[in-house]
Design a protein around this nucleic acid. Sequence first.
DNA 1: CCTGCTGCTGCATCAAATGCAGCAGATATC
DNA 2: GATATCTGCTGCATTTGATGCAGCAGCAGG
Lengths: 297, 297
Amino acid sequence: MRHLETFRLIEEVARAGSIRKAAEDINITSSALNRRIQRFEEEFGSQIFERLPHGVRLNTAGELLVQHYRAQRSELARVQSQVADLSGARRGHVSIACSQALIPYFLPEQISAYRAEHPGVTFSVRVRDRAAAERDLSQFESDLALVFEPVHMVDFEVIASAPQPVCAMLATDHPLARKDGPVRLHDCLAYPHVLPTREYGVRHLLDSATRGRSVSLGPVVESSSFEFMRHYVMHEQAVGFQIPIGLKRDLSSNIAVREVSRRDLPAGTLFLGYMKGRTLPVASARFAMQLASAISV
Amino acid sequence: MRHLETFRLIEEVARAGSIRKAAEDINITSSALNRRIQRFEEEFGSQIFERLPHGVRLNTAGELLVQHYRAQRSELARVQSQVADLSGARRGHVSIACSQALIPYFLPEQISAYRAEHPGVTFSVRVRDRAAAERDLSQFESDLALVFEPVHMVDFEVIASAPQPVCAMLATDHPLARKDGPVRLHDCLAYPHVLPTREYGVRHLLDSATRGRSVSLGPVVESSSFEFMRHYVMHEQAVGFQIPIGLKRDLSSNIAVREVSRRDLPAGTLFLGYMKGRTLPVASARFAMQLASAISV
DNA sequence: CCTGCTGCTGCATCAAATGCAGCAGATATC
DNA sequence: GATATCTGCTGCATTTGATGCAGCAGCAGG
């Protein structure tokens, strides 16, 4: 939208930390950019950047302003989506921030199912750890968040939630894979095991459950990638951990899955939500409803 | 703000019902205005006016857009007020829609008291019947509403409320003015009486209380002005009705006031509120706090 | 048919935004 | 301490985009 152009420039300057640098990125001269910002500050009635010897930085007023404009921009997108919808167009864009577990199976299925009915709707999917997903929402970079064990839950309006017990991932020829049903945590940890890094919910649950107990964690590999861990347990006979929604349901795969006994490890929760106070664009709202019924099953 | 200029034009066109007429009012040529609207519709991606043989009218998309922009404008005002506040400026503007009863004594006192401490803050006061006050809020024409017996209360976030029993206004030499304390409704109605028109809360309460009862209303004068009624009861020996907050507290006035017995007429309620979902500018929020404590006393 | 309104458009004009070059001031490097 | 290099900022010429003027077609009411 034309009238939000100045704001785009402001954001760019804030990001670059310098007017000249930002001007280069946008391919205009620094003088033009400089004057636009000066003009804006004048009519806004207050400086929004503090001038430092080596560039500029948003001051408090600027931060407030940027927050306002982000909200405004997403609001406008909502209105446009609503308008498109009332002309029967069923167009729109859904942006979603999610935990890694949703990436391999769940979201691809859900999105393709949705797009089969609404081909005009496009998606962007961002992988975020549980803290970053919430930040994404509050900075209007994503409409929806689908997060396992979110951290603060401020500004997070919950649409749906589902319990997700932690499961052990095993190579099919692993000793623990011979039985079915729940497996005890100390049995898992007796074997070499791979763990996600601390920013992830699964690790958080494991840390909490073992703190001050007789069992303790001693990962042979720590990784920020669940995909890596899923593949790793097939090589060394190690134990990995993941939540069910991140695991293939069919039995033909070469990974065995056993739920960790809830006596040892309480189930975590997967949350679907959006930023408190927002009204979602129609496409996002509809997709959220689909997700909600999918995870509640 | 510069970038909301196009919207101002759109609003103007919607109001005038014709591009040419609006262009005259704004003192630009119709061609310029026409092209601005066309450009806007193009980048917005949808028509916002339907073209009629004798002018234009907002279509559904346009209505949505106007609503959005109004919200956006008031949001921007809030941000500016917040920025002014953090530089210690204590400036701002408070717009308030209120029932007639607040006009003569209550609001002048409250506003002057507030302005004594914050001289930079300006006010606009709109007199609205109880339905119009709520419409004002939802169209972002007022920040606050102070209404006796509001109608729907949708989109109305209550800050504070206070019971207001209906009182009889009498000339000091009126027979009913000889006693103190509550007066029975049938005694009032036995005398010539003046009533507010149906859109007002006091009348609404009286209508409800007499419906299907032995007593019935037979006003000698119906008026939409409480000021008129207050003065009228001093001429003909008639009975008028008003709520306490609209009446002078001191005894030196030439109007006697007696509360109507609550057995006959339940007390109404005065509500202070703002539009649901909004965040008020600092000045409005502070003034609202002052009003809240004033009416709760 | 005519009059008076409407929205719309081609062309000339004007204003505002931009680009270019250069300024002063501050930091870092030698 | 001099130099080099960065910063934001400003005067002047240029270009781009918005505006004004005149005139078009379409529709309603007389």
